[in-house]
């Protein structure tokens, strides 16, 4: 018999979302790479939260502060006890990223719509271009536990030196160092190519099917447990280029497979590949 995900409630189906479109305790949030998608049509009643314009501080490279997060939630009609369901383009990259950012602020009930935007539209489920408005809530950011899900560069350096599991979820060419940055816009790249020593290459896309849904628990176990050799007690760090693809891997490991100690290194290669005197490995 096929095994179930460890925290199946965190992944909701399109049917579930469709049944809860008018549920005042549920708020659907669209988070995309492409900012125009929401305006072209979205799940009725859903609000747009942009990973960049909304969740990132516009001055320093960090997330917004607790007050700004509370005001974003208030504006979206999200209360502390609201079930927030994230969905988006690109197999839910940015949905997982927004999910992870909501966890940084300690929001309790976050879920991901399996299959994301693509599956919803492919199945011709209801959509609208109407932008809803909700009565503001009195959102209060409670105690935060950033350290358990977010890794910073000094911790990653120590992690690498002590040989703990490190997953590089970028494309193989980025891992080997063949590609350091995207030609013509070096600003978004890094001065050095390669990967953090000790990292194993497990491209994020291996966790998803072509239709954007996540692979089954059995398939995921054969990758992360059997092939990569991750053990339940492992302290795991995942990274990519700016932390978006690795938040999908973080979601898979934490919720679908139930690894209790997984952190996302959101500085990722855009930070590591520019740091002075940190060790780098090249090649496969």
């Amino acid at each position: 018999m096929a095994e179930a995900y460890v925290h199946p409630e965190v992944l909701v189906s399109a049917d579930w979302v469709e049944q809860h479109l008018d549920d005042p305790k549920v708020r659907v949030v669209e988070s995309d790479e492409d900012v125009l998608l929401y305006d072209m049509g979205h799940i009725p009643g859903s609000v747009k939260i942009d990973w960049q314009g909304d969740l990132q501080d516009q001055l320093i490279r960090d997330y917004i502060d607790a007050d700004k997060f509370a005001s974003i939630c208030s504006r979206a009609g999200i209360a502390n006890d609201t079930t927030v369901v994230f969905y988006g383009d690109k197999s839910n990259w940015w949905a997982c990223y927004a999910f992870w950012a909501f966890k940084l602020f300690g929001h309790a009930d976050c879920r991901v719509l399996n299959g994301g935007r693509k599956l919803w539209f492919d199945q011709k489920r209801p959509t609208t271009t109407d932008v809803p408005s909700y009565a503001p809530t009195d959102y209060k950011v409670g105690p935060r536990d950033e350290a358990s899900i977010r890794a910073f560069r000094d911790e990653v350096l120590a992690h690498s030196k002590s040989g703990k599991p490190l997953l590089d979820v970028r494309s193989p060419k980025e891992f080997t160092g063949e590609r350091t940055h995207m030609e013509d816009y070096p600003n978004e790249g890094s001065l050095r190519g390669g990967h953090i020593p000790g990292a194993v290459s497990v491209p994020w896309a291996r966790a998803v099917n072509d239709d954007g849904t996540f692979k089954s628990a059995d398939e995921l176990k054969s990758i992360y447990r059997d092939e990569v050799g991750l053990k339940p007690e492992d302290d795991i760090v995942a990274y990519c280029r700016i932390g978006e693809r690795s938040s999908l891997t973080w979601f898979v490991l934490t919720y679908l497979l139930g690894y209790p100690k997984v952190r996302n290194y959101d500085g990722s290669w855009c930070e590591w590949g520019n740091l002075v005197r940190v060790p780098i490995a090249k090649g496969a």
Binding site: E33, V35, D50, Q52, G53, M182, E183, D184, Y185, N187, E188
Partner: peptide, 17 residues
Amino acid sequence: EILGMLRVRGLSGILGR
């Protein structure tokens, strides 16, 4: 103004190409 600076860099690559 509508896309943010990170996203427009990808577009400048298209004009360059």
